[in-house]
Write a protein that binds this DNA or RNA. Structure first.
Lengths: 162, 162
DNA sequence: AGCAATGACTTGCGATTTGCAAGTCATCTT
DNA sequence: AAGATGACTTGCAAATCGCAAGTCATTGCT
């Protein structure tokens, strides 16, 4: 019943604590998918992602849940399905994800449209507010449609308010 | 002799690319130490950190160098010594580090003074500007003295300009 | 000059963690 | 009733990690 010790804390530094929780190659991708791609289920993470193995996925979901970053809720309409959702602690990672996105876009050869991301960088606060708003309203629409595998589905959510 | 392939890229998503480079439990701590603790040498990372093994440290330094995030320069006064420095690509990770710091401070039970970090969160742009300024001027003074093992050494760098 | 110290890494190696592939087991669907 | 689905386990082989110890050029000390 007690929370598992998890990765042992190395120091009291907040950065170190953060990394003890999601300092690996998968956790933040899962959080990204929850935050901006509208993913909810095990299956979606397994397929839509970049090829995470199911055992690793299960492990990461468990860790993130233990850390209080996500919470599973069983679907009422289909009881096989488990819908994962970010907690407030989880949605608070939005700034980190946004900065990773910006950095990766500027410095890695990403095949994502850099201009759009630069726009997001300029209107940082608005983007973050929008992410949070969607989370509060349980809006399942992906914020970054071009990040989703299928580019179709929703358009016209550019928000330029310089 | 050739650069190692490194972790193979999983997708074109900028976030994924970022995590392929420093998505582990140590890389960002090294970058943090370079950025705000004024660390420069292998020895400092090895000791001042939270107990990274020397082989892992060597590996991470190599990876970060290959990724163009840090650059080693041999010390002119002591030729045994190698001084590592962040590249521009590396200093651009400051926003990520700052957000990790803020998140960890708010949500993990860090033993760092939260008020100070909240102040930093409020004056985000100034803090980032200061970090960059110090980097440009090669100012070796730690930005976050309370993060360093010994609390002494430099004071009076609170910058409140609301 | 001679010799111990220092700094930056390697090497060995057992303990974990990853990454497949396959299997389990409750729900749905038809 | 029989076959999908969804969410996970299990079993390993392979890659990493972490710890202790060892290299090997400088440097410092006497």
């Amino acid at each position: 019943m007690g929370a598992k010790p998890g990765p042992k804390r190395r120091s009291g530094c907040p950065v170190s604590i953060s990394l003890d929780i999601f300092g690996d190659r998968w956790s933040l991708l899962i959080i990204r998918d929850l935050m901006v791609r509208g993913f909810r289920t095990f299956r979606e993470f397994e397929r839509g992602g970049e090829g995470i193995a199911s055992n690793i996925l299960a492990d990461r979901l468990q860790r993130l849940e233990t850390a209080g970053i996500i919470r599973p809720e069983s679907d009422k309409d289909d009881r096989r399905r488990v819908n994962y959702r970010l907690t407030e602690k989880g949605i608070d990672l939005a700034p980190v994800l946004l900065d990773l996105l910006i950095w990766g876009s500027r410095h890695g050869e990403a095949d994502a449209p850099c201009e759009i991301i630069e726009e997001m960088a300029e209107s940082r606060e608005q983007v973050l507010a929008e992410v949070r708003r969607r989370w509060e309203h349980r809006d399942p629409n992906p914020l970054l449609p071009w990040l989703s595998g299928s580019a179709e589905g929703s358009r016209s959510q550019r928000k330029k308010r310089k």
